[in-house]
Simulated assay, not measured.
Amino acid sequence: MAQLELFSHPGPGVRYRAGLCSTAALGLLLLWALTYLPPLLVAYRSQGLWLKQSTYMEQPTVQFQYEVLLVAMTGADPGSFLAWSTFPAFNRLQEDQLRVPLISTREEDKNHDGKMDQLHFKLELPLQSTEQVLAVQLILTFSYQLHVSVINGTSPFASDYDLTNIIAAYQDRNVTTVLSDSNPVWLVGRAADAPFVINATIRYPVEVILYPLAVV
Rank of each mutant, 00 (worst) to 15 (best):
L4G: 00
L4K: 00
E5R: 05
E5V: 08
F7S: 02
S8W: 13
G11V: 13
G11E: 11
G11W: 07
G13P: 01
G13M: 09
R17S: 07
G19A: 04
L20Y: 02
S22C: 12
S22G: 04
T23Y: 11
A25Q: 03
L26S: 02
L29Y: 11
L29W: 10
W32D: 01
Y36K: 06
L37K: 02
L37Y: 07
P38M: 12
P39N: 07
A43G: 00
Q47M: 10
G48Y: 00
G48I: 01
W50T: 11
W50L: 15
W50D: 15
Q53M: 08
Q53L: 09
S54G: 08
Q59N: 11
V62I: 15
V62F: 12
F64M: 12
Y66A: 03
E67S: 13
L69E: 02
L70G: 04
V71K: 07
A72T: 01
M73A: 15
M73Q: 15
G75A: 07
W84E: 02
S85L: 04
T86M: 07
F87K: 02
F87P: 01
F90G: 07
N91Q: 05
N91Y: 09
R92W: 06
R92M: 03
L93G: 02
D96L: 14
D96P: 05
Q97H: 15
R99F: 10
P101C: 15
L102G: 00
R106K: 08
E108G: 00
K110W: 03
N111W: 13
N111C: 10
K115R: 13
K115N: 04
M116S: 03
Q118Y: 15
H120I: 05
F121P: 09
K122H: 00
L123H: 01
L127N: 07
T130L: 06
A135D: 14
Q137L: 10
Q137I: 04
Q137M: 06
L140V: 08
L140K: 01
F142W: 08
S143E: 11
Y144D: 03
Q145I: 14
L146P: 00
L146W: 05
H147Q: 11
V148D: 04
V148I: 13
S155V: 09
F157K: 03
F157C: 04
S159H: 15
S159K: 13
S159R: 14
D160E: 13
Y161H: 11
Y161P: 00
D162T: 10
L163S: 13
T164R: 11
A168C: 09
A168Y: 15
Q171W: 09
Q171L: 14
R173N: 15
T176G: 06
S180N: 14
S182N: 06
S182R: 10
N183A: 13
W186Q: 04
F196N: 01
F196T: 03
I198Q: 01
I202M: 03
R203G: 06
Y204K: 02
Y204D: 02
P205G: 07
V206R: 03
E207Q: 10
E207S: 06
V208G: 04
L210D: 05
Y211V: 05
P212A: 03
L213P: 06
V215Q: 08
V216A: 11
